[in-house]
């Protein structure tokens, strides 16, 4: 589904991704871990086409399409969803209005008729239940005045609404209390199918108890330096990153 080869990317001339490669197939869950500043969020930004970053080398194919050529909105419409590490507040724009525009844009791309208001509201109700989101939030402005945890839940709600092929969850677990964590993980698990895939960026093994990954990768200094099964996460939890840093830097 997704194939990243030797990806290099920089921001304001500062190189962050330094030859990153990764393959994700349908039905798989990949966890990406790594120390602060390693480039995890950068990877998410580059995959979704954030204009702040410049790709200098490498290629990314998504379902046989050259992803790097697509505009950010078309990447979304092709089925890439990012749950932002820091969801953005958009004052004055109601969640309902925002989501309806997004859903209908996706439908238009697939040459489907726009959803009727009733259908949309029904769908919204269903998906909200999935993440046990408070009804009131939907009537407020996008993320404005939401607590940290509410913002994260709202991201998963949007993911449910847009039903992506590939979802990238950037530290969706941080800032969540234990119950919220379970709810969010539950939501993600319910959305999992054999034809979609997820990349879960996290610092905590805890989340991986709920969302069980098929692969765990360590991102360090702009590259994937180690990959393994879910036991790698346990090992990282226990030993930290120093031993990996030593291995890499010692090379």
């Amino acid at each position: 589904m997704l194939e990243i080869k030797n990806l290099h990317a920089n921001i304001n001339g500062k190189e962050i991704l330094k030859g990153l490669s990764l393959t994700v197939n349908a039905g798989e869950i990949h966890a990406i871990m790594g120390p602060n500043g390693a480039g995890k969020s950068t990877l998410a930004s580059v995959l979704t086409g954030n204009p702040a970053f410049t790709v200098t080398e490498g290629e990314v194919t998504f379902n046989a399409k050259n992803l790097l050529e697509l505009t950010p909105e078309n990447r979304s419409r092709e089925g890439i969803f990012l749950s932002f590490q820091y969801p953005v507040e958009i004052p004055g724009v109601s969640m309902v209005n925002f989501m309806r525009t997004a859903v209908n844009e996706h439908r238009k791309y697939k040459k489907l008729e726009p959803m009727s208001a009733t259908d949309f509201l029904r769908m919204q109700r269903e998906k909200k239940e999935l993440v046990e989101m408070d009804n009131k939030l939907a009537n407020r402005s996008v993320n404005e005045g939401f607590s940290g945890g509410e913002k994260k839940r709202n991201e998963i709600f949007q993911m449910a609404m847009l039903d992506p092929m590939l979802s990238i969850l950037d530290e969706t677990d941080s800032g969540l209390d234990i119950d919220a964590l379970r709810i969010v993980a539950n939501g993600v698990n319910k959305l999992k199918r054999s034809d979609n895939a997820s990349i879960v960026i996290t610092h905590y093994q805890r989340l991986l108890d709920y969302i069980v990954p098929d692969f765990v990768h360590v991102l360090y200094d702009g590259r994937i330096v180690k990959s393994g099964g879910k036991e790698l996460a346990l090992e990282l939890e226990e030993r930290g990153y120093d031993w990996i840093k030593k291995e890499v830097d010692g090379e």
Binding site: T71, P72, E73, F84, V88, I90, P91, G92, T101, L162
Partner: peptide
């Protein structure tokens, strides 16, 4: 960019944001 990531074109995103800005 947040709107783009949800599949909303830049033109529509500007429309939404400006309307939100003028909402009050």
């Amino acid at each position: 960019f947040y709107c783009n990531q949800r599949g909303i074109s830049t033109e529509d995103a500007v429309g939404l944001i400006v309307n939100g800005y003028a909402k009050e």
